[in-house]
Every structure is written in C-alpha cells, then in structure tokens.
Design a protein around this nucleic acid. Structure first.
Lengths: 237, 237
DNA sequence: TTGCAAATTTTGTCTATACATTAATAACGA
DNA sequence: TCGTTATTAATGTATAGACAAAATTTGCAA
C-alpha cells in the first residue's frame, strides 16, 4: 500500500472512464458512499474528484452529483517542441542559417504589422532551418522592438530566434494558424523544391497581455515534415 | 469577499506568473508563509498550489520548495470542433455528401489498415463536407468493424460519420498528423480545384485502449479553411 | 577530501468536523 | 394548474492538527 489513497481513487475512476466502463453522462457515487467504500474521510475523496474535475474528465454539480463529462469540446494537446530539439531528437544535425535581419517601420499596408509594432519599430529576422544540411523550413519572424528591446542585440548565428525568445520572453497568449500554401519562387529556391510545391504554413502570434510580442511564419516542406499530435484525455499522473 | 480564498490565492499567483512578474525558476513563498500572509490554514494554501501544479504552472519539490515552472514543453490546446458545428457557427449551411461506402478486407499492402482492422473487416466511408454548397473537405474514414459493430448500420445521409462516432464511441487515445499535399486528380475534381492545389491534410487515428477504432483523412482546400488554435498557458478557472 | 549517516525543512497525505452554496424537489397558496 | 417558497441533498470551502516522505544540508568518520 505505497500509493496514496487519493491517487488510487483518482486513477480508479480515470481508468473506468477511459475504458468506457463509465460512459459519458454516467453518474458516480456520491462522496459519502465513496468515503465508506474506500474507508477514508470526505476530504480525501473530494481532493481526488476535484483533480478529475480539473482535468475535465468529470462534471460536478451541487445537489445533483458527479457525472462523467462528455468529450464534447474535443480539445487536444498538440506538442510543438523547439524545432532544434525536435531535429536533434531524431539524431540529425541541426543548423540555423540567418538569411536577413533588419530593423524597420511596419508596413502600412499590412495592418497586422502595425498592430504588432504598437507605434514602434519592428525587427525582422528571416532564416532557414536545416536538418542534416537539408532545408526543412523557412522562418520569417517579426518582433516588436518595444516589447522586446534586447532582441535587437541578440546573436542568432548559433541559436535560432525561436529558442532565444522562448527562453527570454514569457507569453500569456498565442494564436496558431495552420494552412497549406504553394511555395513561392524565392521560397522554393531556399527550400530547394519546385515552385508551387505544397508546404505546411504555421503562423504563430504571441502576446503578453495586450502587447504583441512576435509574429512568426514557418513554411515547412510538405514531404519533409509534418506536425504530429499524440494525445489522450488524461492528465499526467 | 465573495470569491473563495483558495481561488484568490490560485489566481493571484497565476496572474503574477503569466504577467512575467514571477519569472520561470522563481521561488514562491513556503506554505507556512502563505498561510500567515492570507490568514488561512495550510490545507487551503495547499489546495490552491496543488491546482497550479496540476495545471503545470509551478513545480513543487519536497524540502526544496515551490518554483515557477519553465514553459519548456510549449504544449498548447488546439480545438478541432465538429466540422458541422464549425460551419454552422459561421452562419453557413452545412451539408455532408456520401460518396462511397463499403465493407471490405484490409488492404494487405497497407499495414496501417491491417493494424486497424485487427483481423476483422473494415468499413470505409468516403464523403464530402460542404459549406454553403462549396466543397470544403474530402473525408476518407476507415472504421474497424469489430471495434464498432453498430457502425455498419448507421445512417450517414444526414449526419456525418465524424459526428456519429464522436457521440457513440469513446476513445482513449488519438494521434493527429497534419501535413500539406497537392490534390490528386479525383480529389481536385470533388473539391472543384485545379489538380496539385495545396491542401491541408489532417489524418487522425483513434484507439480505445490497444484496439484501433478509426483512421480518418481529411483533405481541406487550402484557401477555404485553416486550423486556428488560440490558447494560453492558463486553465479555465 | 571523500563518503556516508543523521538532522531538518518542506511538501504530501489524511482525519474529523463545520458551515456555506447551489439546485433539484417537495410543499404550499393563489 | 401555475407560480412561489421551503426543504433537503449534494458539493464547495475551510479549519487545526498529525504523521509520512523526500531531499537538502549538516556533521562525522575514513
């Protein structure tokens, strides 16, 4: 009996829910019954069920009881690790090639740039991610000079700007947009593919509070890379 | 003083962490100090911090203390709602057109099909998702006849097989693979685009335990649709 | 210095109890 | 019958204390 009772109750019901034995909408025993069944106090039952509720596996309503949640939102956890770590994790060598770097005013024809800059300047950093010398993705990153003053001085010859930002700037909110586009002539040139080749385009915007931090656009060669999301409704135990 | 103290402690630190005031690695006060600062018992502090730990915002180590977690994994929540609901939510009309439906043996040349079928048959259902009469995506779905016996009898003329499965079959694990591909001739024909047009390809496999349930392949017209993931590191309160 | 053992600090779990909050249900009056 | 009010069953929050477990620190010995 080394595992705590609280964990046991939690994993008991997690298992019964995930296995389908307890179908969505099914009612769980009330706390009183569970404290008798497990021979413990109500607080212990309550902590276990509270954790399951926070994990989204059950819904709890006062007076009504505890019910298995319906997986209605169908939300899932998608891991988008650091690209360098991802490549190295496959046993390949990773390299970041700086293509262009400039500090400039936002383009008045692109409202997204103005919103990001917030009246100040933008720092644009373009680069190429390579795995074993093969082009993997083109990255165009716009950073608000006001939001991240130190960014202009950082050295990106050995570290990709993505890694740098992740370690130095906390974000509070982000939006990812994933689409498919054909490579333009210059993009295709860098990626060493035929123009028009279908590419996976990931655009990410991050904010800290109301202040925009950065917009990134990553263009992956379709055959060379795809996003993999493996997930389950469970939380790490 | 309507909000519970437990929630207040939780949201206090959540705010200070997300705003960057408490940087990753920073140490939080020990429970003894917090119970004095908030004038409450240690259990209350403990429940608040346990919730933050479950949400992944802080790490707690015995004897060492409580620390702001590093956002290393960079995992995010991506909502892939029901396609029909998504389209209707935009105020467009949604239609599912059944293209093909067959029960067959798994193709021995495709190991994924054999693994899914698990010795039994497969039910293949191909269809087209339309928004306001415009083709949005082609869906090819393979379902294990053993895992979902009732699937062969379900009627998909008015309901897409995706919605049906979501409501009738619980899954425990899933894998999503997102890539960019050019439309084949027949695909382009259905989607009313030029062959080779870049399309977003979402392949999803779901399992219940070790048993495969279904493999889906959704091919979206690149211009007509993109996946949007908006997220923050926070948990719903 | 190195290595191991003991002491201490901090979180983890648990109890038994109390009162608050919410919402389903029952009771009641127009 | 209908709408309103009271009851009550369930979860939510909180307390004060106790012991367990783990990891850092300290101290002692080889």
């Amino acid at each position: 009996m080394k595992i705590p009772l609280q964990e046991r109750i939690r994993s008991d019901f997690e298992g019964r829910i995930l296995s389908g034995e307890l179908a969505p909408g099914a009612r769980l025993p009330i706390e009183q019954e569970l404290m008798v069944a497990y021979g413990c106090s109500r607080m212990t039952v309550n902590k276990a069920l509270s954790a399951l509720a926070q994990a989204g596996l059950i819904d709890r309503r006062k007076r009504a009881g505890t019910f298995v949640a319906r997986p209605k939102v169908h939300s899932m956890v998608l891991d988008v690790p650091d690209l360098a770590a991802q490549v190295r994790g496959r046993g390949q060598s990773y390299r970041y090639v700086l293509l262009r770097r400039a500090r400039r005013r936002p383009d008045p024809e692109r409202p997204a740039e103005g919103a990001l800059a917030g009246g100040g300047d933008l720092v644009e950093v373009d680069g190429l991610h390579e795995a074993d010398g093969v082009p993997l993705a083109i990255e165009r990153r716009l950073v608000s000079a006001d939001a991240v003053p130190a960014y202009a001085e950082a050295d990106f010859l050995h570290e990709s700007p993505g890694s740098w930002l992740l370690q130095h700037v906390p974000w509070t909110e982000a939006e990812n947009r994933i689409s498919a586009v054909g490579a333009s002539v210059s993009e295709a040139d860098h990626l060493k593919v035929v123009p028009g080749t279908p590419c996976l385009c990931v655009e990410r915007r991050t904010w800290r509070g109301a202040e925009g931090i950065t917009n990134v656009r990553l263009l992956f060669v379709g055959e060379a890379y795809d996003l993999i999301a493996r997930f389950g409704p469970s939380q790490p135990g």
